[in-house]
């Protein structure tokens, strides 16, 4: 699914190097967790995967289903199946959430040469996904993310993920700002989407989320490189010992 090879990247404007040779492979259907202390480059990695032009790749490559995606813009990557669940979802005033969902779904369908979704079919899909995420249809008439609580914003992200049916889901600190009930709803939503054809890259600071979304592999990102990889037990080890121990080993 995803193959990151010796990826070096810097902030386009001022040149600070953030990623210094990331190597990572994610198989079809795999849930890979990326953990690491603050400032290790976790969020940067998510932005570079989704094509944000504030960052510049200086070396290495990102292969998605065997092909480099570095030349594709964010909308093209999205249409090919890359989805980023934002740590801080943006507000779009005056644009009803339903309108946004339909615009996004049809833009992707159009890019892939598929016919536009007719309204009844669209409504049917939204109703089904919203019910699973315990989202009230009334909320979807409100402008996207405007006045949404932290939990509502994150659920709206997962709703978009469910409707857009991506192949590679990158989730950036999805657990931040969620209480335990909201976290369970979000995790259930993600688990329902797990399949042999869909991979996840779950970026998180804490092990807590991984109790609910159980990963196949865990990778520790530190100072722009993956310094250790393992199974879900690695996350537990981090929880008990902190990052210092592993950083010490790697140094």
């Amino acid at each position: 699914m995803l193959e990151i090879k010796n990826l070096h990247a810097r902030v386009a404007e001022e040149g600070t190097e953030i990623l210094k040779g990331v190597d990572l492979t994610v198989q079809d259907g795999e849930v890979a967790a990326i953990m690491g202390p603050n400032g290790s480059g976790k969020s940067t990695l998510s932005y570079i995967l989704s094509g944000r032009d504030d960052y510049e790749v200086t070396e290495g490559d990102i292969l998605y289903n065997g092909e480099s995606i570095l030349e594709m813009d964010p909308a093209e990557r999205a249409a090919s199946g890359v989805f980023l669940a934002f740590q801080y979802p943006l507000e779009i005033p005056g644009v009803a959430t339903m309108t946004f969902l339909k615009t996004a779904m049809n833009a992707q369908r159009k890019a892939r040469g598929e016919a536009e979704l007719m309204t009844p079919e669209f409504i049917r899909r939204v109703k089904a996904s919203a019910a699973e995420l315990k989202i009230d249809m009334e909320m979807l008439k409100r402008p996207l993310n405007v006045g949404f609580s932290g939990g509502e914003k994150k659920r709206a992200e997962i709703l978009q993920m469910a409707l857009l049916e991506p192949k590679l889901c990158v989730m950036d600190e999805t657990d931040s700002g969620l209480d335990i009930d909201a976290l369970k709803i979000v995790a259930d939503g993600v688990n329902a989407l797990r399949s042999a054809e869909r991979s996840f890259l779950v970026i998180t600071h804490y092990q807590r989320l991984l109790d609910y979304i159980v990963p196949d592999t865990v990778h520790v990102l530190y100072k722009g490189r993956i310094i250790k990889s393992g199974t879900k037990d690695l996350a537990l080890q981090l929880e008990n010992e902190g990052y210092a121990q592993i950083i010490g080993e790697a140094a």
């Binding site: 094509g51 813009d73 909308a75 989805f83 980023l84 934002f86 996004a104 833009a107």
Partner: peptide
């Protein structure tokens, strides 16, 4: 954000 959702 919009582009990440596939909107040009």
């Amino acid at each position: 954000y919009c582009m990440q959702r596939g909107i040009p």
